[in-house]
Design a protein around this nucleic acid. Structure first.
Lengths: 142, 142
DNA sequence: ATGGATGCAAACAGTTTGCAACGAC
DNA sequence: GTCGTTGCAAACTGTTTGCATCCAT
């Protein structure tokens, strides 16, 4: 993620709680929800509140340090990967995986032509079974 | 407006309120939210309740008669188009437009290879400015 | 001393649900 | 009468906000 030379946050303050939230997101390979982030952040900073987690998430989003992923599902998930990328969602276990489609740029052009929109970004979502779930007969499902 | 209750699909009951909800969705070119559907349905059936609209939407979804679109935004939107298709969202005015990307099938394969998922469906979302908004100078926007 | 950040709880929006009354067969 | 549907309100979930307090400058 070479790009962001924005020298960490846009001149704003990365307080202890904001940093805790950021670290939580960065150290996880998955895409935690605000609630999961809250739980994990509390281990680092026992007094941090839910409100502060949300405030911090907003701050970090605006600073471009994290990325929010909203699917229909339920809660937003947060992603340490801030560059453009796509997502695959497992219909078996709900797992969310990042991947990048190199042809995204041309896709955007095609989609723009089709829709007559002036393109800004494209995002592709694949639904299917993750490697684990395609193995497993039925499921360990919710 | 063909009053034809068409093939009631799953053999379930298309009650007066469910039909009203379905008609509302079918007669609109846009993608109304549950609330908008509720407002419109009340014009047809003044006593219909919010709960019934939601119940009906669930029923219609399960019957495959309407399609639910959930973006991060806020409320779900409902779409009379039930075939696979993609969406463009205007970052200016929030307008939601359907379009179809013919190469979706191959995209799915590529995405599946990248993510190692067993593909089931793909959906592409374009963000950008709709024809109206790209015309308008700056904005009438929030 | 000041201004922004925190933490709590209460407010919100969207959606779902428990349950009694209702309607179709 | 039976069984599913309706309608109302209350419950729920995820998120946001008002406000007093706290903290780093």
């Amino acid at each position: 993620m070479a790009k962001s030379t924005e020298s960490q946050k846009t001149g704003e303050k990365l307080t202890r709680q904001r940093d805790a939230v950021l670290q939580v997101i960065r150290e996880r390979a998955d895409h935690p929800t605000a609630n999961e982030i809250f739980q994990a952040a509390r281990l680092r900073l026992p007094t941090i509140s839910y409100a502060t987690v949300y405030n911090s998430l907003r701050f970090l989003k605006e600073a471009g340090l994290v990325h929010e992923i909203k699917f229909g599902d339920s809660a937003s998930r947060y992603d340490r990967e801030t560059d453009r990328h796509d997502h695959a969602i497992c219909t078996g276990c709900g797992k969310l995986v990042d991947f990048d489609l190199p042809q995204a740029a041309e896709l955007m052009v095609v989609a723009a032509r089709k829709s007559k929109f002036k393109p800004e970004s494209v995002h592709l979502t694949l639904r299917g079974l993750c490697p684990d779930c395609r193995k497993t007969p039925s499921s360990t499902r919710v």
